[in-house]
Write a protein that binds this DNA or RNA. Structure first.
Lengths: 233, 233
DNA sequence: AATGCAGATATTGTCGACAATTTCTGGATG
DNA sequence: CATCCAGAAATTGTCGACAATATCTGCATT
């Protein structure tokens, strides 16, 4: 039953996540992105075109295209005639990332309060209660997925294509990279749940201003929490 | 003397605008972007790789890379096995663009209030007074440049790499495309100047919260103004 | 006349080879 | 021993050719 609801979520989001590689460059891009985000390829390491082309069994041209796309979502940095490196994770980088998140997702919440349909809001509510049950049962595995899903819903609910694109196929992969590689599955779940509830309430009341404020606070708290964990390294 | 100050501005910003093409793909990218933003290549039209490669006298691979980069900054849309089209300008697109600007530049102003050095703030102030003189003399040609320069300074002053990158080599070219193609050189200059003054004041007082609010208002007004002009078509 | 299918045409995707640039290596020089 | 320079090696940038896919054209069918 809870797996069912998860499947439904997947379905509605799939068009924006759009993991449907049609071309070889697509596949290589997705694979490379996965390997970078999950730490298979070490952060800060060099990406050799020839090496990757033998590794993934494609031509250098498709590797180049994949790397270009990775650069566009800030997962690698490239210098002309020198090559590409996976970005290195730093405390400052994390702070700056969360500042952008705060700004963009705050606006997303504001717009979602205006642009989400009633049924979308209803879905968001049920998602939240599902999530609540899971947390009560102590299913820590789905906690992060639930959190990400919540945020995705609101982002998509903003109906702003730029916002959606920047967050979903831009920033969020970097956020996940930090999460995965700093080894934090689902931070401060119980407290975050209350915050989610209040945000949904504001959206349901069509109060964009409040929704934005609450979302910004929520992300700010997240940042502070992660920063704390980061200092223990 | 006023041309001198403009040169100085150029110099300090050049590292972020970084118009220094080292590779053929760079040149092609910059050229194509220019042609698209300024309407040389019509919005909504198809970008044929073979045609462009003969036009700019480079190989198709170079053109492909350039187009990929254009896609990354939302100036063209691409479909697999079909091709790329220049984005078409719509009222909704403009609104969404300004919503993102409001969000990101608001945050930029907030951060600038904390992160700009005293000398950077002093430069900003002198920039503003130069701009004021030019406006008084009725030099409408530099009005838009002055406006753009003002916003760039604050964005760069935020010291947030993500923010800077997203705005400077992402959104701003689209903004300029709308401005150029809707034929509005420098809208509502005199009133905007007052707003600029208040923003600088807030930054000088290190009041990030106020700076953000004022910047958001400023951009909101801009949007409303442009929307009005857009309806007369 | 409208629709659907099949071949022809054009466009994009992929590849391997060559050119240009950077980086490494080793020896000469102070 | 450190530094600098030149040639070698390796890497990225660019190119033209071929493969795969989509689009167009014209004919047959209803």
């Amino acid at each position: 039953m809870s797996t069912l609801s998860i499947d439904i979520r997947r379905q509605t989001l799939v068009k924006y996540l759009s993991e449907s590689p049609v071309t070889a460059a697509d596949k290589t891009f997705y694979q490379l992105r996965k390997d970078i985000v999950e730490g298979e390829i070490q952060s800060g390491s060099k990406l050799s075109e020839t090496e990757l082309s033998t590794r993934y069994i494609v031509s250098r041209a498709v590797v180049r295209e994949a790397i270009n796309r990775l650069e566009a979502c800030h997962l690698v940095e490239r210098k002309a005639n020198v090559g590409a490196r996976v970005v290195s994770l730093t405390p400052e980088g994390l702070v700056q990332l969360y500042q952008v998140r705060e700004s963009l997702e705050g606006m997303a919440a504001r717009l979602a309060a205006v642009n989400m349909t009633d049924s979308e809001i209803a879905e968001l509510k049920s998602l939240l209660s599902d999530h609540f049950k899971e947390v009560q049962q102590g299913q820590s595995y789905y906690q992060e997925a639930g959190d990400v899903d919540f945020h995705y819903r609101i982002i998509v609910g903003s109906k702003n294509e730029h916002l959606i694109s920047m967050l979903v196929n831009g920033i969020y992969h970097l956020v996940r990279m930090y999460r995965v590689q700093l080894g934090m599955a689902g931070p401060r779940v119980s407290t975050a749940f209350e915050e989610h509830k209040h945000i949904v309430q504001a959206i349901a009341n069509r109060d964009g201003e409040l929704a934005e404020m609450l979302m910004r606070r929520h992300i700010l708290y997240s940042k502070n929490n992660i920063e704390k964990k980061l200092q223990s390294f």
